[in-house]
């Protein structure tokens, strides 16, 4: 599948934003601190930037509002509806924290729940497609949810470190969610590597009864929308290295930093904040690589008609 930059940026940023919003909804950061107020604003900005990015690949973005209508059948529509609904508790919580320095349990927990549902809907857009076999597994939404939680906890730990707040709880959350996310992701990759193709050139043409089927001629000499969109193969040769780099940068580096901070006895401050900024930056970089692979490595059934 073609890894469209707008979609990669969208899923990465919105995942991070919803993760942070979900964490803030739990009330683990002190709303009277400036860092927590900034965190609320940042979560909303990340979500908004992600959603704005997602409209960039549309052919007719002026009609995007119509995408809210088919929530009965479409995960993309459900995601749109949930994204808007989630803004209600998030804005309420952000108002309470930023203006009134208060944590409100009701909008807080509602925001956490809705953020989770929104990320789930995003993941189900991909996981519901039977035509892309690697995505069509419950591991896909699990990975998206855990990566959002991991990113949110890492960002939360960054803000706690910047304001000199207690780090232990957030450190534990960051390490646990990051480890869980990558455990799920490695299972997802094993699943993809081990799967026998659901559809083959034989089943796609129905000619398997006669014998082995091989593409002889494409319908056109040049590329078309389908081969560009579903037949992406550029740089797949680097997939192995990118897999390791994404794990290192998106998982190992941030988890180690998050683990070391409380062990080193840090209770926040400049060094801790800088270390966590590095951890978050590494995580985002790793996530971008992970999302690129998510698209670039997934094979679409239609390529059985195009010789691979």
């Amino acid at each position: 599948m073609h890894p469209a930059p707008s979609i990669i940026v969208f899923t990465t940023l919105s995942g991070l934003g919803y993760g942070l919003a979900a964490l803030l909804g739990l009330g683990v950061l002190d709303p009277s601190l400036v860092a927590t107020k900034i965190a609320h604003v940042l979560a909303l900005l990340l979500i908004a930037a992600g959603l704005a990015s997602s409209t960039l690949h549309l052919g007719n973005p002026q009609r995007a509002w119509r995408a809210l209508s088919q929530w009965r059948s479409s995960w993309l529509s459900r995601e749109g509806v949930m994204a808007i609904l989630t803004f209600v508790p998030l804005l309420w919580s952000a108002w309470a924290a930023v203006i009134e320095s208060r944590y409100l349990m009701l909008p807080g927990l509602l925001g956490t729940l809705f953020a989770g549902i929104t990320v789930y809907c995003t993941a189900m857009i991909y996981a519901s497609l039977k035509s892309v076999q690697a995505w069509h597994t419950p591991l896909t939404p699990l990975c998206y949810l855990l990566f959002a939680a991991s990113g949110g906890a890492l960002l939360g730990l960054f803000f706690a470190a910047s304001s000199g707040g207690p780090l232990l709880l957030l450190s534990v959350m960051a390490v646990v969610f990051t480890a869980a996310a990558w455990t799920a992701k490695l299972a997802w990759r094993r699943n993809m590597d081990a799967m026998a193709p659901l559809s083959t050139p034989e089943s796609a043409t129905g000619l398997g009864d006669i014998g082995k089927v091989r593409l002889f001629e494409r319908p056109h000499m040049t590329e078309n929308y389908l081969t560009r969109e579903m037949g992406f193969r550029i740089a797949r040769k680097h997939a192995g290295k990118l897999r390791q780099l994404s794990l290192l940068s998106g998982g190992v580096v941030p988890a180690v930093i998050a683990l070391v901070l409380p062990i080193a006895g840090s209770d926040g401050g400049l060094i801790a904040a800088l270390a966590m900024a590095l951890a978050v930056a590494a995580h985002v970089l790793g996530m971008l690589a992970e999302r690129w692979l998510f698209f670039a490595e997934a094979r679409h059934a239609v390529m059985n008609y195009y010789g691979g």
């Binding site: 009609r63 995007a64 119509r66």
Partner: peptide, 25 residues
Amino acid sequence: KCIGCGLCAWACPYGAREMDLAAGV
């Protein structure tokens, strides 16, 4: 009503749908 998101083309295993790049539908 089409916004040109392309998800239907992804969902089709047969490659029966193609985006018109000029009209965005």
